[in-house]
Design a protein around this nucleic acid. Structure first.
Lengths: 220, 220
DNA sequence: TATGCAGGGTGGTCAGACCACTCTGCTGAA
DNA sequence: TTCAGCAGAGTGGTCTGACCACCCTGCATA
């Protein structure tokens, strides 16, 4: 229990013990963990040390704490990891250009994935979007279009990253697709996607983004 | 300063304030942060609270602490994070799959960018890698190949994200390219890249990754 | 001049206290 | 009997002050 081997950090040990505890007692997502005081006693350390370990895990989104109630094992899907890291990464990102380019990497990848997979191509979403685009009744945002594309690929991590990049890229995505030309481009993009023409779909996408980018420059 | 708005967690606020401090005072990687006691006084919170925030950041590998010396801002290369998270993530097959797929998104994008841009294609790195590959004298790791590709695109953000994903994807990338078949594939990949054949280059890449993945499965 | 020691600063850990909050079960009034 | 309301126990959130182990530096001594 002592730090005989020096190097190992106490709070890391505690995290390890918590992991064992969780698997031993078969604690599942949503279940409650023993209270901080009980854990401290059980692991023979102070409550302070337990808390440091728990806070670390909380930052990662591995657990969730509710005052007055307790500590709960939470679903990994809600991990804050990506958010936290993004702040630091963004600080280092030289230019906004990198952010935009990286965002587009994820968008192109999503389009490609869908176009090259018949199951994804046949999803009813695409047709639904096209009619929404045309009828002009409901509002249809740019980011709706892109988001749905990434959602369809079922890659949650990519979606998460995209969402963050979107916020940093300074492009106005929460804008309705209204202009006739823009509707035409997006409509065609959907057509090509459903037809499975990866190259053409990507060309449409590029055309669309160029237009959006041009718009942004005018704003300045 | 009080938790007037309730919801926000104290230690998250502190992490935020630390981030501000770091950017304001232009603390760079390797530099020392103010001591825990000073931070506590500066932020008007207890040392306990500061420590909880610092331990969280340490788990993420954002900082490094050395007893008797201080706390240092570090590059996220050494994160215990990976081990901790992997234990939790690995149980969710979907998650690890997302990580791998997202990593490959960045890799494919880099290959495409280079192949489609003459300036990048003509870089001397590629030929240099090929000879390194053949002469067999110097060690040439898998991750060297991929990393150089992304480095060449000059997108630092993508590189940073890739770096993180690499470590979570559970693929052995720090392995030398030695097998005859593997050398052949990578060599061909470089050929196609330099020739500007995007499609063929991507096919080579896919072949390579399939092989690597197959290897990983055998290990289990 | 060179050695060695003491002191101050740092992170690491702990015990104990209080606060704010949630839940539960008991009590007393309708 | 029923139900509203309150008290208490349990939980996380925060703080204080203390001590330890360790590192560095500068001063005093050999």
């Amino acid at each position: 229990m002592q730090n005989s081997q020096s190097s190992s950090k106490r709070f890391l040990d505690i995290i390890g013990e918590l992991q064992s505890l969780i698997s031993e007692q078969k604690i599942e997502y949503g279940d409650r963990l023993p209270s901080e005081r009980h854990l401290a006693e059980k692991l023979q350390v102070s409550r302070t040390a337990v808390r440091e370990a728990l806070r670390s895990m909380e930052l990662l989104g591995l657990i969730e704490t509710r005052r007055g109630e307790g500590t709960f094992l939470s679903d990994f899907k809600k991990h804050q990891l990506v958010e936290v890291l993004s702040t630091f990464i963004m600080q280092q990102a030289r230019s906004i250009q990198d952010v935009v380019e990286t965002r587009m990497i994820h968008e192109r990848a999503a389009i490609t994935t869908i176009t090259e997979n018949e199951e994804f191509r046949m999803l009813p979403v695409w047709v639904g979007m096209q009619s929404k685009l045309i009828d002009g009744e409901s509002v249809f945002l740019r980011e709706d279009m892109v988001r749905e594309t990434i959602v369809a690929t079922e890659n949650r991590l990519s979606l998460k990253i995209w969402f963050l990049l979107k916020q940093y890229s300074g492009v106005s995505f929460d804008v309705a697709i209204e202009a006739v030309e823009e509707i035409a481009i997006v409509h065609e993009l959907l057509d090509e996607m459903m037809a499975g023409n990866t190259e053409k779909a990507l060309i449409c996408y590029e055309k669309w983004m160029n237009q959006v980018e041009g718009e942004r420059r005018e704003m300045e």
